[in-house]
Write a protein that binds this DNA or RNA. Structure first.
Lengths: 365, 365
DNA sequence: CAATCTGACTAATACGTTTTAGTACGTTAT
DNA sequence: ATAACGTACTAAAACGTATTAGTCAGATTG
């Protein structure tokens, strides 16, 4: 008789309550051998049943699954991963000070979409917040060496970013959000910021604005570059004058940049903000300085969220489905994980301009 | 000669670039045997070195670690987990529609704090968003059976919540955010909502308000109950009249509840909102209805965030360090994972009232 | 000087699966 | 009648590490 011919102690009554006093005793963990014995088959059969492989009859398969279900048994994922199977984990590392992360609705929406699509495929998302890119890179190296994740999502692509090359070399399937331009070693999902910014500028120009302020985000980000390039192009084609001020996306810097722009002389008649947080902060500054919006100055936000809906006046903004951007990124990642295709650039829909109360023709018009 | 007496093909030059054209060929994975051979020791020695155990000399330990570092080798985490070691993963499941999740600054801040503390200990956070409690419970059962996580954080505790009992029975270390009252089978971190609400009510009563509106959150949540109980107590002790309206925390319902309260006659002279999102939405509605804030009606938010800072007037709010709440929860979870102590209730600091421009004495005063 | 001990290290086993290489048996083709 | 084949299943060999039970040389002790 084999030595392990005993079922681990377990009440057959599903609603049973383990004796709380014995918290120290480790409850015997079920193994596939237990399921096999109870179903009257071998462990191999259990494996075949759980992995939906041919080689056993439907009746046997059903019986095995029923036994497993009853005992709430599932294959130990470490043992499974050890055999080369997937971890069913995707990793995402965000290199920003954790305290400031919460203010960006963008992240939460994007993450929701990403997570939702991935968990449909049974893939969990592992999230890590680090201080800087150096730490981020170290995490990628560690995760790759430990075989911890099946895929990665890279955010905030900068000019001359070292991460795509590194991650590609680590051979971890990955997708970049925001990359474009030079051929990347990884698949990327990108938004046409140039066209989006042009949309705003054409709208403001049509209203009659000729001198426009721009509160931009972090200059090293590629999408910031693309927006600035659109502004450069529009200077010539639309014949308007634009002054850009760089910030770190924080409400504080958005506010102080607004103050600078509104105090300057001559004063611009419209301000474009690279994020919703800064636009809302800017509107606050304008109100505080008693500069009527949109009477004296119009305000446009590059991003849309509850922050642009709620103020009075509500802020004209480029709107995009950030949640859908997350699901799109997840779809690309799943495809990359499954097929390891050649890298490609996938374009997400260009944001649409939603006109609200914060924009109007300039004062003189 | 042992059959695996060959180093997997690997350039000694760290900056080397694998031939991109051979994307299909699987790069040989390093194993502890490789490190052992290169360091001139056995695999056991490698294990001892990596787990900081006695049994090898410092010189040997150093040599092993150097070889591993050079090749970017780290123990395969699945193999390690299979031997009973920790996964170094904490799980958190949020049962809310993913699309609405992004609007709550609370989650992002809390998650940031939690994550930051956990990753200090090398523990990653696995995040899953599900539709309802049923799905949430299924996830807990699956994760426990698969041995996927070392700890769990439970959110949004409701009255008669089934989850604490279930998770306790699954023997997964876990911490609840928001529980209190009846002795729970799990350690919980809780905030004294009763005292916090009382603080608001006393402040408003001192200003002279006698009829106050309350836009509450989801009634089945325990913290909502505690707030309502404080309101009940204050009716008697402070001699004020309060009308509560239940919502689902959304800006939409917050707005419509505000409309109802402001249209009622007699009209309340102050409104308390259970969340910052609803307070901001409510301020918008008041402005739209041309009800001056704080001239005709004062507004107080139970939660503080950028949403209460930015509007004009900025909203008087209870402020608490949500990020710190996350780190506190993480600390409790780490303790629970390490020591498996008896469940206990840990109280987080009671929120402080920050008076801003949205509150003033009632019109007649 | 023999017996004991200690430090540094290793061989072998266990963890719980998946996968490979079968076996046994009944059915069909030659 | 025999060979070939397919189906349903199983025994045994991985996967890469941690751990247990050693081995061995040299130091210490009685």
């Amino acid at each position: 008789m084999p030595p392990n011919d005993q079922v681990p102690l377990q009440d057959s009554d599903g609603s049973s309550e383990p004796p709380a006093s014995l918290a120290g005793t480790a409850p015997a963990r079920l193994r596939s051998t237990d399921i096999a014995r109870l179903a009257g088959v071998s462990v191999s059969a259990v494996s075949l049943a759980f992995n939906a492989r041919p080689g056993i009859s439907d009746a046997t398969r059903k019986r095995i699954l029923e036994v497993a279900e009853e005992l709430n048994w599932r294959p130990h994922r470490a043992a499974r991963a050890l055999k080369g199977a997937n971890n069913d984990v995707a990793g995402i590392v965000i290199a920003r000070p954790a305290r400031t992360l919460g203010v960006e609705p963008f992240f939460a929406h994007f993450l929701s979409g990403l997570q939702s699509r991935l968990s449909n495929e049974g893939i969990a998302t592992q999230l890590l917040i680090v201080e800087d890119t150096e730490a981020e890179v170290a995490v990628y190296r560690r995760w790759a060496a430990e075989n911890r994740v099946d895929g990665l999502v890279l955010l905030d692509l900068t000019v001359d970013d070292v991460r795509p090359r590194l991650v590609a070399d680590l051979r971890v399937p990955a997708v970049i959000l925001g990359g474009h331009g030079a051929p990347l070693p990884l698949t990327s999902v990108w938004v046409d910021d140039h066209a989006a910014m042009t949309r705003i500028l054409e709208y403001l120009a049509a209203l009659g604005h000729r001198f426009i302020g721009h509160v931009s985000g972090i200059p090293s980000y590629q999408h910031t570059r693309r927006r600035l390039r659109a502004i450069g192009d529009a200077r010539e084609s639309l014949g308007i004058d634009i002054a850009s001020v760089a910030t770190d996306y924080s409400d504080t810097q958005g506010a102080s940049a607004t103050r600078r722009l509104l105090e300057a002389s001559p004063r611009c008649t419209a301000i474009i903000y690279d994020s919703d947080v800064m636009a809302a902060a800017g509107l606050g500054v304008a109100t505080e300085m008693a500069v009527p919006v949109p009477g004296e100055v119009s305000i446009v936000s590059f991003d849309d969220s509850i922050l642009t809906h709620l103020p009075h006046p509500p802020i004209t903004a480029l709107t995009r489905d950030t949640y859908a951007l997350g699901t799109l990124t997840a779809t690309e990642l799943l495809h990359t994980m499954a097929e390891r295709p050649e890298p490609r650039a996938v374009q997400a829909p260009t944001p649409e301009l939603v006109v609200r109360g914060s924009t109007a023709p300039p004062p003189g018009a």
